[in-house]
Design a protein around this nucleic acid. Structure first.
Length: 841
DNA sequence: GGGGGAAGGACCA
DNA sequence: TTCCTGGTCCTTCCCCC
């Protein structure tokens, strides 16, 4: 009914007042809508909303056409399927939990009113002229509500007082409230600063045996029960009138009349929740509303029922639940927004009873996930298990501003955003592989452009390197016109999961990275490397072929161990071999990465065998194959360019013309050394994949690309050196710093420098590799010893670094070969229905 | 045909 | 004069194996 009659064309349901909120019943909708419309009309925002509205209308049209084609037979079949699923769901219906949804009343506004009592009798809202976060109940009478721009609100209510947001204050109050929540459910699930779900089943069980004193709370001073340690500030608060809203249905009848008297709460669910709300009010002078029900979906709906300052309970009986759902407008259910509401309304579905009547039709018109959701709703089902601290999927930051057309300014803003985001990511110790740029132009059209890197990133430079390229493409696409923006955002997603964070692949980027969040104490910064790479390679990140610098993360490689999904035995020698093998089609000149013997031949089989032997610890005794390669060839392979243009020239000249352009001339796969969060080395190779409801999780996706001729997995020495050299010359002019050992090197002879870097790199990589692969039956074999011996000759920096590596290994709780990784069985949280949805169908 | 990335959008507080 | 921010999930399209 809500969307049918809206003071204007049907087109405008998006802009018209949404009086779904509590405190907005019985308003003069037509008058309000007229003002909203007149104020909005002609604006870019309005135009865009109109466009979106038309898109929804088209969707509806399409849906209706589809509906017209449905045959009776199809409908009958669909009904059978719906009935079958309904039976299953009915059988698994759980009514045993007591779930509570608590929602602070007009939270931000209430906090401001509490702290500034003269606001109490005025219509007020928190936010700015451009956007309001929330409004008090006085303002709601005028149609002023959250998510409404302030200037429109002012038109609706000229006396409206707009108070700027003060999130620090809200956070502090929220912390107080959460303290109380945790006493009823230590695992409560906060949804935002003002909202949370609790499972009080266990609390109620204990509560039954509590003496009355434990359920007694005093109104003015703190003397009793488990609330004895209330602070002085809280007691002061008690002096303030807690009544913020007129006509509040109070849940604490004795509260207003009780002067300093105690209130005793019972043992029922209602009493426990009433007590919780009472304590919140005593502690913060703010009121909360609550819903009590057998699942989250219902609890959420219930908390809205007696808002503000009220509560409502649905007892755990199927009959009552169904009765409750019958008249409930679908829009009241969390997850049904204005688009879904409108689509359902077009099918004549407004309340949940109609929803259940039309399930067969819905199953034919909507996707599986969608109609399963509808079915759950119509049956009054929802999640019965609240899960706290679910894993974050992405992190982003965005900013809205006045029109911005200058490219330089845009890049600069982009960098700022990357900076902020990097800080946030690092604060939470997160690294993600996908960088998304979000742009909103002055016409309010939103575009997102994403790029997935081969490795996870978290530093400003790394994120910016990708975001900047994405931005460049957008700027270029409208050139010579300027890109006129009003919002820019940067997001990082595709996080390495908590489980996979440990076996984090050290990419070559990480290897060269200074940032402590990766593996530590390297002195060069990845950003510089990226810069150098980009300078020599144009929009490098957007070109799939420019992946020479990138090494796939271990999670990428997990599928090699595809036998089982539950356990991975690490450190199987048999699978170690291929990673060190040399790409097939290339190469004339090779240095064994284990024993450093130069081998001149293209006999790769022999070379691979040699490395395998070396890895087993016996290679020093083996005879390397010798075959001569012209000296110039050697130099070409490692000579760094002095400039970007030279770099390009060199790259092509160093390739065998008969080879694919993208194939490196020298290619050594980087061993897959894993690290934990601190960058400490862990067991390699066998990551794992998780399965959630039969689907592969986000974490592990690709097949193992590392063996044999995978160019993606290989580190191109030449390219690496280009980057390294450019980076160093950028920053230091004539003197070059080895990015591995941090030792300044003479630039008189670049070949020598390159040799040095190569050696360092090989030794680093090897050391890590060896450290994390203690060979069975060899405690400290010669090859490793020799590497360690060479390390001693390096400078202090590097010695420390080696030490760190070795120390870390020492602190490992289990020898790598004994480690068994058990897969996480954690489920993704379906927003509404975690239980059985979609498993059978 | 299924998996997975990219892009866009719905929805929430 | 002026219509947010940050997050999740879903759908659709397209490519690749």
């Amino acid at each position: 009914m809500a969307s049918h009659h809206q003071g204007g064309a049907d087109l405008l349901s998006r802009i018209a007042l949404n009086d779904n909120k509590a405190g907005m019943e019985g308003l003069d909708r037509d008058k309000i809508n007229k003002i909203i419309l007149e104020t909005s009309k002609g604006s870019k925002f309005y135009e865009n909303e109109l466009k979106k509205e038309q898109q929804v209308n088209q969707r509806i049209e399409k849906m209706m056409e589809q509906k017209a084609r449905i045959t009776k037979e199809q409908l009958k079949q669909a009904q059978a399927e719906v009935d079958k699923l309904t039976c299953e769901l009915e059988r698994s219906r759980e009514l045993g939990r007591v779930i509570v949804h608590v929602d602070m009343d007009a939270f931000y506004a209430a906090v401001e009113m509490r702290d500034c009592p003269e606001l109490k009798d005025k219509p007020m809202a928190v936010g700015s002229m451009s956007m309001l976060s929330t409004s008090n109940y006085h303002a709601r009478r005028f149609g002023v509500r959250a998510a409404m721009p302030g200037f429109i609100a002012k038109k609706l209510c000229p006396n409206l007082v707009i108070v700027p947001t003060n999130f620090d204050k809200y956070r502090a109050v929220s912390a107080q409230v959460r303290e109380i929540f945790s006493e009823y459910d230590p695992h409560f699930m906060p949804m935002s600063l003002d909202e949370a779900y609790l499972d009080i089943t266990e609390h109620l069980e204990q509560r039954k045996h509590w003496p009355e004193t434990m359920r007694t709370y005093h109104i003015c001073d703190a003397k009793t029960g488990n609330d004895a340690d209330r602070s002085a500030a809280e007691s002061e608060r008690d002096e303030l009138s807690p009544v913020l809203f007129e006509d509040s249905p109070s849940s604490s009848p004795s509260l207003s009349g009780a002067d300093g008297k105690a209130e005793v709460f019972g043992t029922s669910a209602e009493e426990a929740v009433r007590e919780m709300r009472f304590r919140i009010e005593q502690k913060t002078s703010l009121t909360a509303s609550a819903g009590i029900a057998p699942n989250m979906m219902l609890a959420k709906v219930c908390s809205d029922k007696n808002k503000p300052n009220g509560q409502y309970r649905i007892p755990p009986e199927r009959q009552v639940v169904m009765e409750f759902m019958k008249d409930l407008p679908v829009r009241k259910v969390s997850g049904v927004g204005k688009v879904t509401e409108k689509m359902l309304a077009a099918l004549g579905i407004v309340n949940c009873d109609q929803l259940s009547q039309q399930m067969a039709l819905l199953s034919l018109l909507f996707s599986g996930t969608s109609w399963h959701n509808f079915l759950h709703i119509s049956l009054g089902l929802g999640s019965t298990c609240i899960e706290r601290d679910s894993e974050r999927k992405s992190m982003s930051t965005e900013r809205t501003f006045g029109e911005m057309s200058d490219a330089e300014e845009q890049y600069s803003l982009c960098r700022d955003l990357c900076h902020d985001l990097a800080q946030d990511l690092q604060r939470e110790g997160l690294k993600g592989k996908t960088v998304t740029l979000k742009l909103k132009n002055v016409k309010f059209e939103v575009k997102t452009r994403a790029f997935t890197l081969q490795y996870a990133v978290c530093t400003e430079e790394e994120i910016f390197a990708a975001a900047k390229d994405l931005l460049k493409v957008e700027i270029d696409s409208v050139s010579p016109q300027p890109l006129k923006l009003r919002l820019m955002g940067v997001r990082v997603s595709g996080f390495i999961s908590a489980e996979d964070k440990k076996p984090l692949q050290r990419s070559i980027m990480g290897f060269l990275q200074k940032d402590g969040s990766d593996s530590g104490s390297f002195t060069q910064c990845a950003g510089s490397v990226l810069k150098a790479q980009e300078d020599s390679d144009g929009a490098s990140f957007l070109k799939p072929q420019s992946t020479e610098m990138k090494v796939p993360s271990v999670s990428d490689l997990s599928n090699t161990n595809s036998g089982t999904d539950t356990t991975c035995y690490v450190n199987k020698p048999a699978v170690l071999k291929p990673s060190f093998k040399i790409s097939t089609q290339v190469l004339q000149f090779l240095t064994c990465p284990v024993c450093n013997t130069e081998m001149k031949d293209v006999n790769l089989t022999a070379f691979n065998n040699h490395i395998d032997e070396c890895l087993k610890g016996s290679a020093v005794d083996n005879e390397p194959t010798h075959l001569d390669v012209p000296k110039e060839q050697k130099e070409l392979n490692s000579k760094p360019p002095a400039s970007s243009s030279e770099s390009r020239a060199l790259k092509s000249s160093s390739h065998d013309p008969s080879c694919n352009e993208e194939k490196p001339s020298t290619s050594i796969s980087v061993p897959l050394v894993e690290t934990d969060e601190d960058g400490d080395f862990k067991t390699p190779f066998f990551s794992h994949r998780t399965k959630i409801n039969g689907k592969r999780s986000v974490i592990s996706k690709k097949k193992m690309p590392v063996c044999e001729s995978s160019s993606k997995a290989s580190l191109t020495t030449t390219h690496n050196l280009e980057a390294v050299t450019e980076m160093s010359s950028d920053s230091k002019g004539s003197s070059l710093t080895c990015p591995v050992c941090s030792q300044p090197q003479s630039t008189d002879d670049l070949t020598l420098f390159n040799r040095h870097v190569d050696m360092c790199l090989n030794q680093e990589v090897l050391l890590e590799f060896r450290e994390s692969h203690p060979p069975v039956g060899h405690s400290d074999e010669p090859a490793l010893k020799s590497v360690r011996g060479q390390c001693k000759n390096k400078n202090n920096n590097q010695q420390q670094q080696q030490k760190r590596i070795i120390n870390t290994l020492g602190s490992s709780p289990l020898p790598p070969s004994k480690k068994i990784k058990v897969l996480s069985t954690k489920h993704t949280i379906d927003k509404f229905f975690k239980s059985n949805a979609g498993q059978k169908v």
